[in-house]
Simulated scan of single mutants.
Amino acid sequence: MVDKNTVVVATGNAHKVVEIEAILSRVLPDVRFVALGELGDFPDPVEDGEDFAANALIKARAAQEQTGCYLAVADDSGLCVDALDGAPGIYSARWAGEHGNDEANNEKLLAELTDVADADRGAHFHSSVVFVRGDEVLVGNGDCPGTIGRVPRGNNGFGYDPLFWPDETPSRTMAELALDEKNRISHRFHALEDLASQLA
């Protein structure tokens, strides 16, 4: 039987579920949000989409089919660097070859930008959040603009956060922000706000 009162969130990250629920529950007050991992041990789908939204849709559809839930939400995000023509983009998590190796990815980023002047080190984090309701698909998009530093700073966050200086906090990297500060300016926050406006 299809469950129409549960939104399966295609992630194993408990914090991400809380962040998504905090925003979307305002416009979806009568549903509960559950992480995919709480409903079973499912294989990860192959993310072979051409952009963030396509990969998020792959994850949302897979979660929908695996669990039988009518509602599903998934996000895909990454770092886009101006001087690298938008790279690493959708390959952000595995840019250096091994999925989730933050240190290797950051080392590669610094190496690629060695000769790039400070004024040309603009970048942004992008997030696409896809919500599926049966066959209906809604997409929210959000960005967090900033620049890439030359030395990692901060111990919070993950991924490229120690090298990313958000425009909204010019004196601190993303990895130097408290979690609630990061959430207020993050690309995922903006994408969820965009999505919520479509669901309202």
Rank of each mutant, 00 (worst) to 15 (best):
V46P: 14
D48R: 14
G49M: 08
E50N: 15
A56H: 07
I58P: 07
I58Q: 11
K59Y: 05
A60H: 00
A62L: 05
Q64S: 13
E65A: 15
E65H: 13
T67H: 00
G68F: 01
Y70Q: 12
Y70R: 12
L71Y: 00
A74C: 06
S77R: 00
G78Q: 09
D82L: 06
D82R: 14
G86F: 07
G89R: 04
Y91M: 12
Y91H: 15
A93Q: 04
A93W: 00
W95K: 02
G97E: 10
H99N: 13
N101F: 01
N105M: 03
E107N: 14
L110V: 01
E112Q: 10
E112A: 15
E112F: 05
L113Q: 00
L113T: 01
T114S: 11
T114N: 05
V116H: 03
A117F: 02
H126K: 15
H126C: 13
S127H: 03
S127M: 10
S128L: 12
V129E: 01
V129R: 02
R133Q: 15
G134P: 08
D135R: 15
V137T: 13
V137N: 07
L138E: 12
G140D: 01
G142C: 14
G142T: 08
P145T: 10
G146F: 02
T147G: 11
T147V: 14
I148A: 10
P152N: 09
R153N: 13
N155V: 15
N156S: 09
G157R: 08
